[in-house]
Amino acid sequence: MSTAKVIVITSGKGGVGKTTTTANLGMALASMGEKVALLDADIGLRNLDLVLGLENRIVYDIVDVVEGRCKLRQAVIKDKRLQNLGLLPAAQTRDKNAVTPEQMIKLVADLQEEGYTFILIDCPAGIEQGFKNATAGANQAIVVTNPEVSSVRDADRIVGLLEAQDIEEPMLIVNRLRPKMVKNNEMLGVDDVQEVLGNSVKLLGVVPDDETIITSTNKGEPASMIEGSKAGQAYRNIARRLRGEEVPFMNLEEDTGFFGKLKKFFVAG
């Protein structure tokens, strides 16, 4: 049995960037030479294929595999840019009850047999059947949250549920941070989020709010492939951390002109 990292990407709340995170980390990891499988567990609300620009290649989906209509290898779509990135798409015409946690465990085990080193599972929002399915086969978890109270509240709920399962200490990504607003006390900071979630949740990365995410998502080209995208850079850093590298956290402060730099210089001095 191989020792692939099977990571579920989850948040509780919808719309915080689970799918975007899954796509970007998958791309970044694959570009670093990892053999990556992305598994869309959001059955009935299929999105991951869109963000990756692979919708038109789908023939079979996860439910087809589970119900034995095709082989696993037939359903996994090779990415058009990176040969070592595969996507197992969700079914769009079914719902969360179409698969069971036991079937997900089997599916993940079969993917490991195929030699994937990273298996990222895009978890649906909510804490019901879809969440149970998505977390069943995982051995690690990334909790994505936005720096806002409702999102952090749901992240806390999710961490509680994950702790009750056989999953390592969950890792945290704070997504869509606006450093300026944090500075002006208009937005929760990373430390505020961490204060609520506690020490048992390890900070994996902070992704700044970045317009390139919107355009790249619509185009089906994850931002982690775009040079000069700050969010893309943040995702690449997170991917390196997942591979075990020590990567310092980015300075998200925007350039504040000459005086700002001068001030920084003095502080640093």
């Binding site: 509240r153 749901d154 806390d156 509680g160 549920l161 609520v196």
Partner: peptide, 24 residues
């Protein structure tokens, strides 16, 4: 332990928690 959002704890005596009790 930390008691997180959505968790409910009930006890018929005194309750001592070393950890946070989060909102929710």
């Amino acid at each position: 332990q930390t008691i997180r959002s959505g968790q409910r704890l009930q006890h018929d005596g005194h309750l001592v928690i070393s950890g946070d009790v989060n909102a929710g």
